[in-house]
Amino acid sequence: MPGMNFQRMGLAAGTAIMLSFGASTARAQAMQHSTEPPFSHEVYTGAVLFETLEYGFGLDGPNVGRWDGQAWYGGDTDRVWLRTEGETTRSGRVEQAEIQLLYSRLLGYYWDIQAGVRYDIRPLPNRAYGVIGLQGLAPGLFEVGLQGFVSQEGDLSARAEVSYDVYITQRLVLQPNVEANFALQKVPELGVGSGINDVEAGFRLRYEVTREVAPYIGINYERKIGDTARYAREEGEQVGAWNFVTGVRLFF
């Protein structure tokens, strides 16, 4: 049951590592609050956010599980990040799973520049990437993430993510988000064409029971484009899919 193993691995990578990361941030934070002189007043702290931890019911195709999480630890300007995202199919097989380890530095009031590595456990063959990115808050309060990747084979690709929190009430929040992936050249063994590979858009309506725990429902649409879509068709996969999603946003 290699699929099961990989599901474990993917989810373990997604949750266990990050949770232990979170625990260590809490410990380190307690240590930093020591009042031993000379005290520096630079506060080191951390957080774990799973923006997405959901199960999607395919409206015209298979069901999927999906996670997207990030954790950081650091001071005012310098931080270390661990990010992970991935997808499983109904059968429990991990289709996609990636982990990123990044260092970030505050570039301006609202923006961090990031650099680090990304490792894709799925799809096979496994790939390692170098990452450079920009993450922050754009005018209008849009959360923006831009990342450029160079794989171990020298292939260049990029990802752009934008999301927005619409506070309907103090606790009911509608979050539209859009993500797009690009590649400079095709990578057939990964089913990646050149140009825009895929676009994903969603609306998630969450209720913040607390800031930490917010169950949500929503819809998500994914569509593969161009050669990437052609590769998918050749594999007998769908190129576009609507999902009704239900999940929980966790923030610690």
């Binding site: 934070q29 506060v43 702290t45 951390g46 957080a47 956010l49 800031r211 923030f251």
Partner: peptide, 8 residues
């Protein structure tokens, strides 16, 4: 309290 303010 500080940790909460720092993350949000």
């Amino acid at each position: 309290v500080i940790a909460n303010l720092k993350r949000d």
